[in-house]
Amino acid sequence: MVEKHIKSLLYNHDCVIIPDFGGLIARYVPARISPVKHTLSPPSKMIAFNEKLVLNDGLLISTIAHQDQVSKADAQQRVAEFVHQAKASLQQEKRFELKEIGVFRYNAERRLVFEYQEADNMLEDSFGLPELSARPVKQEEPAVLRTLIKERQQELVEERQPLRRRIKRAYNVAAGLALAGLSVSALYFLSLQDEYNLSSLNPITVFTSGYTAPAAAQPERYADGYVPFTEEERVAYYADMLPASDAPEVAEDKTYEPEGSASITSGFEDTGFDTEDVAEEAIAATEDAAEEAPAHIIYTKDGRSYIISGGYARLENAEMGRAQLMEQGHEEVHILLPQPGSRLFRVALASFPSKEEAQASLTAYREKYGETLWVLNN
């Protein structure tokens, strides 16, 4: 309550003395401009503190006695209690906050320092004046000038498009002429070579260049007395042109059988291999693995209902959860491996033959271990 009276007095007075503590002094601050925030602040009051003003001038005590309708002795008692509370807070917390006015602290020299926190403008002449933000004014061009500039930009775009098309067309023509010139030059240089003919451009000659053609004289069709080849001569002529084959001859009637094939077949027949025996062995191996696993881990569906306390993504975390439950005094705790469509290892507090028995016991378990328990049918 004393803080409220101190603030109301600062609106109408320039100095408010708190007996045995110090005096708050209000001074006028003119309007100011912040070049960083670009704001304009109205005139106001700034509060300072002087710890040497400790003599009671009666202003604060008289105001409390008049407004609260108490005696001056009671008002003085309230002020004394406020001062005692402020000094105790400074000794213990090293600070004391005067709400909506400022904060008192001790500096390195153990002198009382006051930091003013401007919340409300305490100057009556500036009542209701807000802080103004100065925004830069952007000069806009006239509407007619903006229209002319937009039309000129559109004309420039339209002028650039035909120029680009002409450049592209000229580039295509130049590229075509360059390719044609290179092709003609290549043919010309090829014609200058010795023994040049058009058949050298045939790609099949690349594969047949590994052997030399036979030196047999070819017949001249247009010579006098030309006689065509017989069938035997034609076959002999083409046989000389074809390269000799180094492939070994294979008898037509001989059937190739790899060595040891009979022994491989007989081996399978003697063993009496059967898929049913393999399936039975796999099932037996799974059952042996389940028997060797810890008794608290349930691998397969057993038709029972379990009260689940939580699910874990890893088996190690599920073991830790089980250990915590056993430390709390619960003896029977199981871990159910993930079922099809799930990846969680579930920790079960209890198991029951049917779902009805598990639901009936769920309320009692929830009272002891929490409301997050639920029933899982395995």
Rank of each mutant, 00 (worst) to 15 (best):
E81C: 10
Q76D: 07
A48L: 13
R78N: 04
F49Q: 08
A108T: 05
E51M: 02
D68Y: 08
E81M: 08
K99Q: 08
E81Y: 09
Q67W: 10
L59C: 13
G102N: 12
P43S: 10
A80W: 06
G58Y: 05
L55V: 12
D68R: 14
A86L: 14
K87M: 04
I64T: 06
K94H: 12
K52N: 15
K72N: 10
N107Q: 13
I47R: 00
V70M: 11
A108V: 03
A75I: 14
K37G: 00
L53N: 05
S41T: 11
K87E: 01
L90R: 15
A48C: 12
L59M: 12
L90W: 07
K37A: 15
F82D: 00
I64W: 02
A48S: 05
F96T: 02
K45A: 09
L53Y: 12
A65W: 00
V103Q: 11
F49W: 09
M46V: 07
L59W: 07
F82M: 08
K37N: 06
T39P: 01
Q67Y: 14
A108Y: 02
V79P: 05
E97K: 13
N107I: 08
V79S: 07
A80P: 00
T39I: 11
L40N: 01
I101N: 01
P43R: 06
V36Y: 03
S44M: 10
A65Y: 00
F49C: 05
Y106Q: 06
K99C: 06
Q69R: 11
I47C: 00
K87V: 09
Q69Y: 03
Q85C: 04
R78L: 15
Q92K: 09
